[in-house]
Computed example of a mutant assay.
Amino acid sequence: MITIKNLNKYYGKTKVLNNISIEIKKGEIFAIVGHSGAGKSTLLRCINGLEEYSDGSLQVNNKEIKSLKKENLREFRKKIGMIFQHFSLVQRKTVYENVALPMQLWGYKKEQIDKKVNELLALVGLDNKKDSYPNQLSGGQKQRVAIARALTLEPEVLLSDEATSALDPNTTTSILNLLKEINEKLNITIVLVTHEMDVVKQIAQKALLLEHGNIIGFDDTEELFLKPDEKMKEFLGESEVVPSEGVNIKLYFPKDNAYQSFITKMARELNMDFNIVWGKLEEINTHIVGNMVINIEEEKKEIVTNYIKEHDIVWEVL
Rank of each mutant, 00 (worst) to 15 (best):
I4W: 05
I4N: 05
K5W: 00
L7G: 02
K9G: 02
G12R: 11
K15Q: 14
N19Q: 10
K26C: 04
G27T: 10
E28K: 07
E28W: 06
E28V: 09
I29V: 14
I32Q: 01
G37V: 01
A38S: 15
A38P: 02
S41Y: 03
S41L: 04
L43M: 09
L44R: 06
R45Q: 10
N48C: 07
G49Q: 06
G49N: 07
E51D: 05
E51P: 02
E52F: 12
G56I: 10
S57K: 09
N61F: 15
S67D: 07
S67G: 00
S67N: 13
R74G: 00
R74I: 12
F84P: 10
Q85F: 05
Q85G: 08
V95W: 05
W106T: 15
E111D: 12
D114V: 12
N118T: 14
E119W: 07
L120R: 07
L120T: 05
L120P: 06
L123D: 07
L126Q: 12
N128R: 14
D131V: 13
D131G: 12
P134F: 10
N135H: 13
N135K: 13
Q136K: 15
L137V: 11
S138L: 08
G139P: 08
K142C: 11
Q143H: 02
R144P: 04
V145L: 09
A146V: 01
I147L: 10
R149M: 06
A150W: 04
T152R: 07
T152A: 05
L153C: 11
E154I: 04
E156P: 01
E162W: 07
A163M: 10
L167A: 01
L167Q: 04
L167T: 09
T171Y: 00
T172S: 02
S174K: 14
N177T: 10
L179T: 00
E181D: 15
E184Y: 12
L192S: 12
L192E: 00
T194I: 07
E196R: 11
M197T: 07
Q202Y: 01
Q202W: 00
A204Q: 03
F218H: 15
D219Q: 13
E222W: 03
L226P: 05
L226A: 08
E234K: 15
P243W: 09
S244P: 00
G246Y: 09
V247K: 08
N248H: 09
K250C: 14
Y252C: 05
N257A: 10
Q260A: 09
M266I: 01
A267G: 04
L270W: 15
D273N: 14
F274G: 01
F274T: 00
V277D: 02
W278S: 14
E282M: 11
E282F: 13
I284C: 06
N285G: 11
H287Q: 14
V289P: 06
V293S: 04
I296M: 09
I296N: 06
K301S: 06
I303K: 13
T305M: 13
I308L: 10
K309V: 13
K309R: 14
E310R: 12
E310N: 08
H311R: 15
I313T: 01
I313N: 05
I313P: 05
V314Q: 15
W315T: 01
V317E: 15
